[in-house]
């Protein structure tokens, strides 16, 4: 409630700057949008439509025939493997996004609000993992979590264990750790950005009205940073939902996720229609989550 009132007061200055950058003619405006539209259609819309069409095709012998049917989608519901693995994957994605937020929020808060010196350096340091290729990070985690890895060597040297522990890697736990590590910078960025957007005068006002630190955090900062939390959550969730490389590389014999089931229909199996249908089901879920989180963040508060 309180946040809505205060925002109304802040709106006029924001409008001024928006008026200045308004394009002059309407025709020109469309022309500007043309390249990006063409790009969007060619690179994103058309491939998705092709995939959508393929999901209704049928594999006959070694060939894919354009015979319209719903069999591929029906398989998702009738075959006992898909739904349990799908929920397992959803659960993993949920765990990954929650843990990234639990880790990412305090980090973003610290860098945004508490650190004065080396603030930019710290910000960059958190983003450094993004410069390293995704595959290299997987290999690095293997070197950390493996039997002869850094973690085991350390524990052995400290005499905390007598024999290397095999439980760090090649199981769903390893997938969880590494996906969290991959998602963390994205979650950090979106929370950090939303924290930066909170005007100083709101916090000053809270202090003037007698709110202490925790109260300000609870009443002002957390509610106003929710859009960032939500978009970070979405980012982490969608990343974890679709990933199949990490389960394949670090998941071990029990690390099968839904992405792996999709991939297994390509390559040697050459069942693109089934793969496309499974892919589309996942795509649908991802779109649904994006829409919900967009709606949620839109109703949460508007700072611009």
């Amino acid at each position: 409630m309180m946040s809505k009132n205060t925002q109304a007061d802040r709106n006029p200055p924001a409008d001024k700057t928006a008026g200045q950058t308004k394009p002059r003619g309407k025709g020109k405006k469309y022309l500007v949008g043309l390249p990006i539209t063409v790009w969007l259609v060619l690179i994103i819309i058309v491939p998705i439509l092709i995939m959508f069409a393929t999901s209704f095709y049928k594999k006959v012998g070694s060939n894919i025939e354009p015979i319209f049917n719903f069999g591929n989608y029906a398989k998702f519901f009738t075959d006992s493997i898909y739904i349990p693995i799908f929920f397992k994957t959803l659960l993993l994605a949920l765990a990954v996004s929650i843990s990234s937020i639990v880790l990412g929020y305090p980090l973003a808060y610290l860098v945004s609000r508490k650190v004065k010196r080396f603030r930019n350096q710290l910000y960059m340091l958190i983003l450094v993992p993004l410069w390293v290729s995704y595959l290299v990070r997987i290999v690095a985690w293997r070197a950390i979590l493996g039997r002869g890895g850094v973690l085991n060597t350390l524990l052995l040297d400290l005499h905390l264990i007598k024999e290397p522990i095999s439980l760090f890697i090649y199981n769903p736990f390893a997938i969880f750790i590494v996906l969290t590590h991959i998602s963390l910078p994205f979650v950090f960025i979106s929370i950090f950005t939303s924290l930066e957007k909170i005007p100083k005068n709101l916090i000053n006002a809270a202090a003037d009205l007698g709110a202490n630190g925790p109260r300000t955090l609870k009443e002002i900062i957390i509610p106003l940073s929710m859009p960032g939390v939500l978009s970070g959550f979405t980012m982490a969730f969608v990343t974890a939902l679709g990933d199949y490389i990490i389960p394949q590389q670090l998941g071990g014999p029990n690390g099968l996720m839904f992405g792996n089931l999709i991939v297994s229909q390509f390559g040697y199996a050459y069942n693109w229609p089934l793969g496309a249908a499974l892919g589309f089901i996942m795509f649908g879920i991802a779109v649904l989550i994006l829409t919900l989180s967009n709606k949620a963040s839109a109703s949460e508060g508007y700072l611009e």
Binding site: I81, P253, L256, L261, L274
Partner: peptide, 13 residues
């Protein structure tokens, strides 16, 4: 091929 793919997926699941 499809059946073999499915059998291996089932085993992994």
């Amino acid at each position: 091929v499809d059946l073999r793919t499915q059998i291996w997926n089932d085993a992994k699941a």
